[in-house]
Nucleic acid binder design. Sequence first.
DNA 1: GCGTAACCTTACGGGCGAGTAGGTAAGCTG
DNA 2: CAGCTTACCTACTCGCCCGTAAGGTTACGC
Lengths: 193, 193
Amino acid sequence: MLDAAVSVFGRQGFHAASMDDIAELAGISKPMVYAYLGTKEDLFRACLHREATRMVEAVVGAVGSSTRPDEQLWNGLRGFFSFVGERRDGWNMIYRQSRGLEPFASEWAEMRGRMIDIVSGLLARAVESAGGPSGPEHLEPVTYALVGAAESMADWLADRPGEDPGRTAARLMNFIWLGAEDLLHGAVWRPSS
Amino acid sequence: MLDAAVSVFGRQGFHAASMDDIAELAGISKPMVYAYLGTKEDLFRACLHREATRMVEAVVGAVGSSTRPDEQLWNGLRGFFSFVGERRDGWNMIYRQSRGLEPFASEWAEMRGRMIDIVSGLLARAVESAGGPSGPEHLEPVTYALVGAAESMADWLADRPGEDPGRTAARLMNFIWLGAEDLLHGAVWRPSS
DNA sequence: GCGTAACCTTACGGGCGAGTAGGTAAGCTG
DNA sequence: CAGCTTACCTACTCGCCCGTAAGGTTACGC
């Protein structure tokens, strides 16, 4: 039943989706939806919460307890891309439909903040183990860049059913890590003039 | 008048925004809005088109005709972040409100595709001038990663009025280029096992 | 056979907002 | 000044869709 809601919301968005559509897809009638899950807003919130939690769990679970920072990142990315590959609708809902929608902005920001924190902590440990120079305020924007890159590639992946999530993760990993490695050791790019 | 619409749409989203709100903010009455710009959908489309065009122009103009690939990328990023810093509402509209909204998905995809093409072409020249190995099908996903990273940092920037766009561009440039440079010369990261 | 309770339906109220009809007032034209 | 055009507004219609009230169906106790 939440699945039906996620599917409809993911495809149509909060406003365009009607409760009748959701009820129909779930194979029940509208008052049942209200009986079980309350208003449309409650329903959307519940869906978003569930999908976001699953996503975070997928990533955290994949990162696991491996030791080397690059391996942690690699595992996390694979977990993330697998999640997106498997749960298209959930991803649509989180990434394409919840962002900037006023009643849910705080929920969304909180869950994305959790994601940022995970990655940020991961990077911090990487910096530490490499003895690099960056303080936390250098780290935060870089974390956003990394997460954004992953999201964008996930979206690319979501529209290409033939692609292998692992392969996509490897591509991104190359891009990130070969850059990050230089950065971790203090290399700096500067404009020429 | 389009400015008013962009502002309201950017903050509220297509559905939550009412034509009365827009008319009021523009200082005219609703029938005027309809007379000049047609239906709500037309209006949204016009706004999106204008803002996206301005954004692309800002980037293309900033890339200019400089020669070195890293300089081109650097200039393009500065143009992009300046745009976002200056035209908050436009950015909100493009990035937070148009994505995945069914009636506008094709418009959005087209304009983002243009952005992707620009960056992709830029990368292709960089690869060529470095004599690197990557074919175009390796290039496309990397372009998505790069664009996604820029978008995410732009969003980070949009919520932090104190930040300097140039500084943000430099951060991203470091992250991207020090990674890209390795890649351009054929370096590859691999999982350990 | 009749109450009744759990469960689900159809079918409606009501509000909100897109889009419009029709009116007002001011500027030309003769 | 009469007649026409332009520019704009107030005030309405109408449809959509959230949320609910009222009614039907099955299962069980007595």
